[in-house]
Amino acid sequence: MEIIFVLIGISLLVAIGFLGTFLWAVRTGQYDDDYTPAVRILFDDEIEEDDSEKREEENNQ
């Protein structure tokens, strides 16, 4: 049963790790705006696509 001391210690360390991650995420401002990133991720990078398409076309020719 003594293993429980170790297990609890480890589980607490893991939990503290998550707490630290959470505090870090808050501190770097990841929770400041919970709307814009959801919109931003849906934008495509069209210019680069256009360029690569052109390059492909050129290569084909």
Binding site: D32, D33, Y35, T36, R40, F43
Partner: peptide, 27 residues
């Protein structure tokens, strides 16, 4: 609107001296 976000985050294409622009829509 989302078009506003898109345009304002692509300002670097209008002025190369702009490195990056980020919109906070709520604020």
């Amino acid at each position: 609107c989302s078009s506003c976000i898109w345009l304002l985050e692509n300002l670097h294409r209008l002025d190369p001296a702009i490195l990056r622009s980020m919109v906070n829509f709520i604020k």
